[in-house]
């Protein structure tokens, strides 16, 4: 059974969002996502400083099985990316909620946070 930590928010395309306060969020992919993808072999991240719009495809995860787009759960500016993840993509399988965060976004629309799914709502999406 895939883990869905209670302190995070989610979107239906299997990204998680952690509210870091000060209008900043961290984004990654869920345990359900990594399990469905199988071994992750490459990750492409957006550039730091790029402006992103909610629902844009802004990163790519390549697994042994398929290439999958990663969608922006919120709009804003990418302020940091996880370079270590690019060098060790397998960590997306090993620690999807910890070491394998993807990028951090400075929100341009704080209200977008309210539209994110709760753990319970996301769990229903995984059934």
């Amino acid at each position: 059974m895939a883990q869905i930590p209670a302190e995070l928010k989610y979107i239906a395309s299997h990204e998680w969002i952690r509210d870091e306060g000060d209008g900043i969020v961290t984004v990654g992919i869920t345990d359900f996502a990594q399990e469905s993808l199988g071994d992750v072999v490459f990750i492409e991240l957006p550039e730091v400083g790029s402006e992103i719009n909610k629902d844009d495809a802004i990163a790519v995860v390549e697994s042994v099985k398929a290439a999958s787009d990663i969608y922006a759960p919120v709009s804003g500016e990418v302020i940091e990316i996880n370079e270590a993840l690019v060098d060790a993509p397998e960590s997306a399988n090993e620690e999807p909620y910890d070491g394998a965060w993807f990028f951090k976004v400075k929100l341009s629309e704080a209200s977008e946070l309210e539209a994110l799914l709760s753990p319970e709502e996301y769990a229903a999406e995984c059934e």
């Binding site: 072999v41 490459f42 492409e44 390549e62 042994v64 398929a66 290439a67």
Partner: peptide, 11 residues
């Protein structure tokens, strides 16, 4: 046979 010498996965 094809080999991709840069990142990415051929499908």
């Amino acid at each position: 046979g094809l080999v991709l010498e840069t990142r990415g996965v051929m499908r």
